[in-house]
Design a protein around this nucleic acid. Structure first.
Length: 812
DNA sequence: TGATCCCGCCAACGT
DNA sequence: ACGTTGGCGGGATCA
């Protein structure tokens, strides 16, 4: 059965790429079949082209495809050349044409990003291997990493189920969480520090310090594969103990999610991954092997557009690294985001399911997808739920230890084994309850929202269902939905086809709902820093739009739908470039201003904690949940103590708490500066924040996480070294994270986009400063906007950043 | 050259 | 015993 290496026929080759979603069934393209020998180089090229073309066709702009695309294009060129003088067939496919990245693209092209729940997308390794004409071994590489992201799950022997990106955000959240728990951030710094030291003192004996394992608390070998929530892998058929690739892939991703400038160099990643298991064996060959593997993983992740390759230039030279380009991962909250313009963007559908913890307002969980796109979805929902349930039941019983996310409380996802039983239990109530709930929520919604269009997702009351769908959102129970004020409002745009996005501070959200849109204009006048920004952004926006750029917000609605189903890739936000520039400028300034060093670092460290107020409420809720019981109990208590001070009314420094609102009224995207809006103190926000699906990640939770880290850190005895250890990243870098991918843009991102719409990002190298000193206010403000994305940023606002090293990141 | 990473041997596993 | 998975690292390619 193993596919013969070269046996594949050209026919099969032609097959791939159908935009259509049905995978296995894709009928062979009738296209022309080269009469002659199937294996001429030409045929290969054709194959490549065919693979590439769909993407090309799509309006791309996005440099996004970056490597892969370019490769394809190159291949194409080659083809042309060859065609003209095809006699001497070039050698075979050329290494590039066989690259894992390309292969992965082809693989991904066969399945929809967001497969409908109903349909079962099965993957047969044999078939795929045959059709793509590669050895099965290669498919394993791809599938393994996809599996680590829960984009596929193994069903049985030669079978996998395709989930697409539905679970992605949940998975990423989980990974982020685990990463945080593992203190990867610290580990990274540690490594950097070491390197740094090495640079200076060449003697570099890796003695004492080097050898010691990171942080005092050995996060034991939590290196297991975690199954974040959802996927319950087919119990029975679990294969060999997961060893590397899968785990490695997850860890690799964690590094991105945890590190601030979301850039991770291979070297660092390899060290961390190695270090984790074995203590230091600086085995060179081992290192090399690790790197090799990382390339494999990186290729797949690149194809998924989650990362992209860049080069980091330090004094030492240029090092290969990767930058996260995937969706921003919110802290635990869930993100039901309110999609401001669901129309335009492919909905992040699955988005995570929220944790029930939040009171979210999920009432309006709009996951964009269904809300606007299709109603009948309800039915589907139910179905999917059932499906999920089924899965759960079948979940493996083997205990997996997952330190991570398992919270017994209401885990955002039902994953851990331990949870399984609970879930099963729920089953009973299951459907019916859900349905009822749905109804309720729906009605509630309708009452609130003027337009019937928005269909609220039904929420399971409890912890629920592991459904992959976004559907299950938060529970009503916690927070009565009734509060429009609290929750972000989505106004379905009824009239004009155009969707608008308005971002408001949570506090104002209700206002919006309640009042006429006219009020929207008010905020604009506000002049704080942010306000200024917003103005600029507006201008920018306009410009961009005119250019015909791919402004997501303005794009035509129809497109989104299509896009959703299509495997194609989205381009990167055009805005990046601008952002980068601005960042660069800022950085420059900053750098000039501060050249401090280690000392400063110390300072910063010290200051860190101070300056933030954390809303109490949240602490209780979300946080609690977030910690795993036992082990972290201690920490937890600590945290609670720390944070419990009643500061409910306080608003986090960050300006970022914006809410997105979709309003039909004005055709413009109006950005309200958060700050201005923020002027009004937020009421009890626990609910607000946490619940708000739309943008802000739950601040408190983020804070907690952050705090956790610190707590752990400090007590841990890991004193913060004077060196480059602290790395909080300036928000500025964040913009890069804007996701282009089809569906996963979250509101925040949207906000971002709107704020800065810039010409698409170029490939020029950008310079990034890892740590710099940041002053409140001032030019940096801009950068702070995106800050709310994670707690860290939020916190960091008051912090000082010291320029540590300047890195140049260049893209290929 | 160094960065990438394809290839496929072959061991661990499942059945 | 045989087929499936998938570590692993040599060494070919690419830049």
């Amino acid at each position: 059965k193993t596919p013969l290496k070269q046996a594949a026929t050209s026919l099969s080759v032609l097959t791939e790429i159908q935009p259509d979603c049905q995978p296995l069934t894709t009928p062979p393209k009738p296209k022309e079949i080269p009469p002659a020998d199937p294996w001429t180089p030409t045929s290969n090229l054709k194959m490549l082209i065919s693979a590439a073309s769909p993407e090309i066709r799509s309006r791309e702009q996005r440099r996004e495809l970056s490597n892969n695309t370019s490769e394809v294009l190159q291949a194409k060129h080659c083809l042309q050349e060859h065609l003209s003088g095809d006699e001497y067939e070039k050698s075979q496919p050329s290494r590039k044409e066989k690259s894992l990245g390309l292969l992965c693209h082809k693989f991904l092209a066969r399945y929809p990003d967001y497969p409908s729940t109903a349909e079962s997308n099965y993957i047969s390794l044999d078939e795929v291997a045959e059709e793509l004409n590669v050895e099965r071994r290669r498919i394993y590489d791809i599938v393994n990493v996809l599996e680590s992201l829960h984009m596929v799950s193994r069903l049985a022997k030669n079978r996998y189920a395709w989930h697409g990106r539905h679970n992605l955000s949940k998975t990423l959240q989980a990974l982020k969480k685990v990463g945080e728990e593992n203190k990867y951030t610290q580990q990274i710094q540690m490594i950097k520090k070491r390197e740094y030291e090495h640079e200076f003192d060449l003697d570099g004996e890796r003695n004492e310090e080097m050898a010691r394992p990171f942080g005092s608390n050995e996060h034991s070998e939590m290196s297991f594969v975690e199954l974040p929530g959802m996927e319950f892998r087919a119990a029975s058929v679990n294969s060999r103990k997961d060893k590397s690739l899968r785990v490695m892939s997850q860890k690799f991703v964690m590094l991105f999610l945890v590190s601030t400038p979301q850039i991770v160099s291979l070297e660092v990643a390899a060290k961390i991954l190695i270090g984790e298991d074995q203590l230091e064996d600086l085995d060179k060959s081992k290192f090399k092997t690790k790197i090799r593997r990382l390339y494999d993983i990186a290729n797949v992740l690149s194809s998924l557009e989650l990362i992209k390759k860049v080069h980091v230039t330090e004094e030492r030279g240029r090092k290969p690294a990767f930058k996260w380009t995937g969706p921003e991962v919110l802290p635990n909250i869930q993100d039901t985001k309110l999609e401001a313009n669901s129309t335009t963007c492919p909905p992040p559908i699955s988005e995570s399911i929220t944790s029930k913890e939040q009171c979210s307002k999920n009432l309006f969980p709009s996951k964009g997808k269904q809300n606007f796109t299709r109603h009948p979805s309800l039915i589907k929902l139910v179905k999917s739920i059932e499906n999920d349930r089924r899965k759960i039941q079948s979940a493996p019983t083997s205990p997996v230890k997952i330190s991570t996310s398992t919270d017994q409380t209401l885990p955002p996802f039902p994953s851990k084994v331990s949870q399984v039983p609970a879930m099963a239990k729920q089953e009973g109530q299951s459907k019916k309850a859900k349905e009822m709930k749905m109804k309720l929520s729906r009605s509630a919604l309708e009452g609130e929202l003027p337009s019937p269009e928005a269909i609220p997702r039904p929420e399971p009351p409890q912890p629920a269902a592991p459904s992959q769908q976004p559907t299950l959102t938060p529970q009503l129970g916690v927070c009565p939905p009734s509060h429009s004020s609290v929750s972000p409002v989505i106004l379905p745009h009824t009239h004009s086809g155009v969707s608008y996005a308005i971002y408001l501070h949570p506090s104002q959200a209700h206002t919006v709902t309640t009042y006429s849109p006219s009020f929207m204009l008010q905020p604009l006048p506000c002049a704080n820093v942010t306000g200024i920004q917003s103005v600029n952004s507006k201008v920018l926006n306009k410009l961009t739009t005119e250019e015909g750029d791919n402004q997501i917000a303005t794009d035509n609605p129809t497109k989104s739908l299509t896009a959703k189903e299509r495997p194609t890739l989205k381009a990167e936000a055009s805005s990046q470039r601008c952002l980068k520039r601005s960042q660069a400028l800022q950085e420059e300034n900053l750098i000039k201003r501060c050249k401090s060093d280690e000392e400063s670092l110390d300072t910063s460290v010290t200051f860190f904690p101070s300056g933030y107020l954390i809303p109490l409420t949240q602490c209780t809720h979300g946080n609690k949940t977030s910690f795993p019981d036992t082990e972290k109990a201690a920490i937890c208590s600590l945290q609670c103590t720390t944070y419990s001070s009643p500061i409910a009314g306080v608003i986090p420094l960050t300006t970022s708490d914006l809410k997105a609102v979709n309003i039909p009224i004005t055709p413009l995207n109006i950005m309200v500066s958060p700050t201005s809006l923020a002027a009004t103190p937020v009421l009890s926000n626990s609910c607000l924040n946490s619940g708000d699906p739309s943008s802000a990640p739950n601040p408190s939770s983020s804070v907690l996480n952050f705090a956790l880290q610190h707590v752990g850190l400090i007590p841990a005895g890991v004193q913060v070294p004077a060196s480059p250890v602290l790395q909080h990243k300036p928000v500025s870098t964040q913009p890069e994270n804007v996701s282009h991918s089809s569906g996963n843009r979250n509101p925040q991102e949207e906000k971002y986009l709107s704020l800065f719409s810039l010409p698409k990002e170029s490939q020029e190298p950008q310079t990034v400063t890892e740590n710099f000193f940041r002053t409140p206010g001032g030019p940096n403000t801009v950068s702070s906007l995106p800050a709310h994305q994670d707690g860290t940023n939020r916190i960091s606002q008051g912090t000082l950043y010291i320029p540590q090293r300047k890195l140049e990141v260049s893209e290929d």
